[in-house]
């Protein structure tokens, strides 16, 4: 493994300063489950890491019926996965958390870290965007809140400026009229990077679809929405024929690539299959 310098920050202010002052090739070290592997496999050139795990106030999980679920940047995937509230109210998030890496990895990795890595195939991002989550960002001069859907600018790239640090994520409350699903496609049942991931979050009103968000993972430079497919579904009863047409539309809306994991054509096919299945699964909440 290549050598790098380790710095520990005790406050957000100090962390932010280190990230600015240490210059290029400096990275936040949170769970480290991705960063350390990338250093070891020489996928990322790293001179400095800034450990934020000792910063107080970033480990809380709060749920409130009006604001929803908020968790700090240090909250691990495993902690959220084991929360009854997450299982009951956010089955989509639960599915994403439970499918990320291994149990050991989930006990170390954070959701904020998975989001900030900004991989198009990240499991947590599609259901968080579908749920309309937003992300809290600290900087020494300004704190801001950004909808997660606007956070990503490309593979591995986000709107974060030098010295900015994500402090937490808020997911809006899950109402009784909502249905949610996240489906992951891979070659294995665990320890797998998704070949395609599809999340659906919808609300029903009087037997008709009031709102729906469909997000597609690993089929574009960032996690994508499928706005045209969504538009075809709003106001309908989500009958099989409409869902089928919308799933076909979602296939047109994605921009997959071919690599050793799967071909672009196959990924596109799976967007169609998984979109249909995810809508069906989300509707099971009303069964």
């Amino acid at each position: 493994m290549r050598r790098f310098e380790y710095h520990r920050a005790d406050t957000l202010e100090q962390a932010s300063r280190l990230l600015t002052d240490l210059g290029e090739d400096t990275f936040v070290f949170n769970g480290g489950t991705d960063l350390l592997v990338e250093i070891r496999e020489r996928l990322r050139r790293v001179r400095n890491v800034v450990d934020i795990k000792q910063i107080p106030g970033l480990s809380d999980i709060i749920y409130d019926e009006t604001r929803g679920l908020t968790f700090g940047a240090l909250v691990t995937v495993g902690r959220l996965e084991r929360l009854a509230l997450v299982r009951q109210r956010y089955p989509n998030l639960y599915a994403a958390f439970a499918s990320l890496g291994s149990i050991q990895v989930r006990n170390r990795a954070t959701v904020a870290g998975n989001v900030c890595r900004a991989s198009p195939s990240a499991d947590t991002i599609p259901p968080l965007i579908a749920d309309g989550a937003f992300i809290h960002i600290y900087s020494r001069t300004n704190r801001r809140v950004v909808p997660l859907a606007e956070f990503f600018t490309g593979p591995g790239k986000t709107v974060l400026a030098k010295g900015e640090i994500v402090t937490g994520i808020t997911v809006p409350p899950a109402g009784d009229n909502s249905g949610k699903a996240y489906l992951k496609h891979g070659r294995r049942k665990a320890m797998e990077l998704s070949t395609v991931g599809v999340a659906v979050s919808l609300t029903m009103e009087g037997g008709l679809c009031d709102d729906i968000r469909i997000t597609l993972g690993a089929v574009g430079a960032t996690v994508l929405r499928a706005p045209q497919a969504e538009a075809m579904l709003r106001g309908t009863s989500l009958d099989a024929a409409t869902v089928k047409n919308a799933a076909n539309k979602a296939m047109e809306e994605c921009t997959p690539i071919s690599n050793v994991r799967a071909s672009a054509d196959y990924r596109r096919d799976m967007v169609g299959v998984l979109t249909g299945r995810a809508i069906k699964q989300a509707l099971e909440a009303f069964a």
């Binding site: 070659r187 294995r188 049942k189 665990a190 320890m191 797998e192 990077l193 050793v260």
Partner: peptide, 11 residues
């Protein structure tokens, strides 16, 4: 071992 896929216990 990320992209060379051996079946694991769950499989």
């Amino acid at each position: 071992l990320v992209d060379y896929k051996m079946p694991l216990s769950m499989d």
